[in-house]
Design a protein around this nucleic acid. Sequence first.
DNA 1: AAACTTTGTCCGATAATATCGAACATCACA
DNA 2: TGTGATGTTCGATATTATCGGACAAAGTTT
Lengths: 249, 249
Amino acid sequence: MLGTIKKTGEILQLFDRESPEWGVSEVADILGYAKSSTHDLMSSLAEIGLLQQTEKGRYRLGWKLVDLGQALVATTELRAVARPVLEELVAEYRESTQLALMDAGMVLYLDRISGTRPIRVVMTDMGPRVHPHCTALGKILLSAQPWSQIEEIVTRNELIRMTENSITDLEQLKIEVARVREEGFAYDQEEMMSDLCCVAAPVRDYTSRVVAAISMSVPAYRFQRSRNELRRAALDAAGQISRRLGYYR
Amino acid sequence: MLGTIKKTGEILQLFDRESPEWGVSEVADILGYAKSSTHDLMSSLAEIGLLQQTEKGRYRLGWKLVDLGQALVATTELRAVARPVLEELVAEYRESTQLALMDAGMVLYLDRISGTRPIRVVMTDMGPRVHPHCTALGKILLSAQPWSQIEEIVTRNELIRMTENSITDLEQLKIEVARVREEGFAYDQEEMMSDLCCVAAPVRDYTSRVVAAISMSVPAYRFQRSRNELRRAALDAAGQISRRLGYYR
DNA sequence: AAACTTTGTCCGATAATATCGAACATCACA
DNA sequence: TGTGATGTTCGATATTATCGGACAAAGTTT
């Protein structure tokens, strides 16, 4: 770790919403460096745009930070970020794994990896879009939206009955969405297709917004005894992806 | 200028929308530094969050940039940024100067500084909001919006005739807005109040969006002979403010 | 108005440290 | 299985970041 960079980090760390402006002397005082070195550091940072100087000679964060931040956000591709995490998940549990987001009121699959067990869930025979109300992914993605929007989506599509377990009642959905919001994960217990169960967990970006969800799909007979472990794994993987998208805490 | 910081700037500069990912060797090659030093630099930058490492060991921009950028945007106050520039403008030309933005279809004054000439425009007797179609500020702020929105605003408020010079015809306004967009400034030649003329120029933020406008108000008899100079001054001052809001080029 | 802080900036000597090349471990591709 | 990339580690050298002191310019206090 280069000392100059370490100090750069310490200096930048000082600037936040509460104290967006710092003088050289203040910074030197707080960090315990010589005033002159601190000046060298800060004026250099200003030259490369990471800081800027006010007309009174004090320093603020520089606009290059916004530029670079935007470049980062623009080039962060969800699928590319999620892929290695999903692969790890499949390697460990050998169950089929999905990445999806909400698009135009439907669950849109971005990526799917098949499990490696002899009896496994193969998703390829269903289209790229499914109804949200009867999938674990969909419940996660729905629960990230205000109820008014959920209502709109769901009344537009109707709460189609796919199996005898499907949620077809608006009140029932409201309760389930509240539960998902509360607990942070969702199950699909043979609600879209009999013998098919899923666990899903939310993927968040650097603004804490739920931008996607991942899920593991498991044959029902295997699901009952392993769902706690699979839930933990899904939540953990979703957390990893979120962190790579800039989400923290 | 500290060498390590200079190099930091060069490294960060490499990351953009076209090439968001760089390896140590590539960077060392392009910048002409030793591979080992480049590694020290980049791994240190990753430690303080300005870069992050992909699972393949290459580097991308770090999420701390987004954090810091957001902190900067959140703490940049238009009025505070504009004030010293406006003061300078008044000191040089001794004419009254205003800062305003568009709010709910009306021109909202954020700041006003009176000129220092014996005969000057005093804005205090007019309210904080005026109609956009008959002021220089308003024309600038209108012209930053698509025509459909302009139409909506203007039909909601009616094109009220304030003086005999006021624009009261929609077609006439369309032509004037097009001219303002083209030339980048706006005049008010006794369109709101007889004997009162103004020049206005747009203030842009780091996204190039017009977020506000500034203007100078001058008694009509003085305006005719000095408007070219005043226009240049207003454009220059608006440019200064824009740059302090992160706008460049 | 004058004296006194406190600010950011500049300078030169010294000691700390960023730099370099070489060697290493890992991975991708042939 | 080899070959050529990659990112990383190490130790010696020389560059260079650091420090204290001096400076001018504002801002406060007397």
